[in-house]
Write a protein that binds this DNA or RNA. Structure first.
Lengths: 150, 150
DNA sequence: CTTGATTAGTACGATGTCGTACCATATTGG
DNA sequence: CCAATATGGTACGACATCGTACTAATCAAG
């Protein structure tokens, strides 16, 4: 095993470490802006349904959110208890269900977005926005590669 | 809806989303390379102790790992059960403890590093290493800013 | 049509993480 | 010296997530 390889490997470690910390900090910030009982992952589901359209099945949402079916079942139950979504049987497929946003769900998202953007505006300076804009494409390439070769 | 503000906010969302997915995929890859019962966070602790030196207190390790004291107590218990570390009272401070690596802990780290690097070598192409090297500095700046303003 | 394989969803248990509360020990101010 | 405060560590409960296993429904091959 060459020293070169080791150094490269450590570079990879360091990179993923930075990514992990940023993810943790941003998730924590997001969590502070959400009401009690609503996890960032729940918000992500609502947000996804608003942006990509609802009426999807739990498995499709799970795939989009990169979590297992189990986790999605649990999260959808929580969201249903909050009356943010409805889950009904799919008339075309006896196995499947259909997830739909309620008005309360959309309203919740509007409020949450406002809170979060206000918080981010407070913390994130223009220079950091510039960094994000600059490297987002690289991150997307990396993400896609990792996703394809997982 | 102010297009300007919303667009900027959404950019931030998208950025953190990419970061989150990359973190999840890399963590999952790492987990596959570790033996059963050893979580990536456990590996991170061992790795930190090897690189930064052991003999630290649980709180200091917790701060470095960006987790709470509770989590560290739990993780250290698991690592102790695996005989990768020892936790002893600090003779200079009746409240504190001192965490030390065992030989088995160091050996475990060597093996794990080899496995993980092999896996990463398989998946990560030179062009992606180039991306990591290119944007790592930007990520570090961002991470530091978020950490300071949390 | 029937049988085997695949898919959607759920139940259960395990685990990592966090928040709150608590105790023991240090540290500091008066 | 003593009281108030701060700090290190733990106990307990809550929760998100995952792996394994299971049921029900669909699909595919004969």
């Amino acid at each position: 095993m060459t020293k070169q390889g080791d150094a490269d490997g450590m570079e990879v470690f360091g990179f993923f470490n930075e990514v992990g910390i940023i993810n943790q900090l941003s998730t924590a910030m997001l969590a502070q802006c959400l009401p009690d009982g609503v996890h960032p992952s729940h918000f992500a589901i609502i947000n996804h349904l608003v942006r990509m359209g609802d009426g999807k099945s739990p498995v499709r949402i799970a795939a989009a959110m990169q979590v297992t079916k189990n986790t999605m079942t649990h999260s959808l139950r929580v969201l249903t208890e909050h009356h943010y979504i409805t889950v009904e049987p799919d008339p075309d497929d006896g196995r499947a269900k259909i997830v739909r946003l309620t008005e309360q769900g959309r309203a919740f998202r509007e409020t949450a977005i406002r809170n979060v953007l206000a918080r981010f505006d407070d913390v994130i300076a223009p220079e950091h926005r510039a960094i994000m804009a600059r490297i987002k494409n690289d991150l997307a390439v990396l993400r896609k590669h990792l996703d394809d070769n997982r």
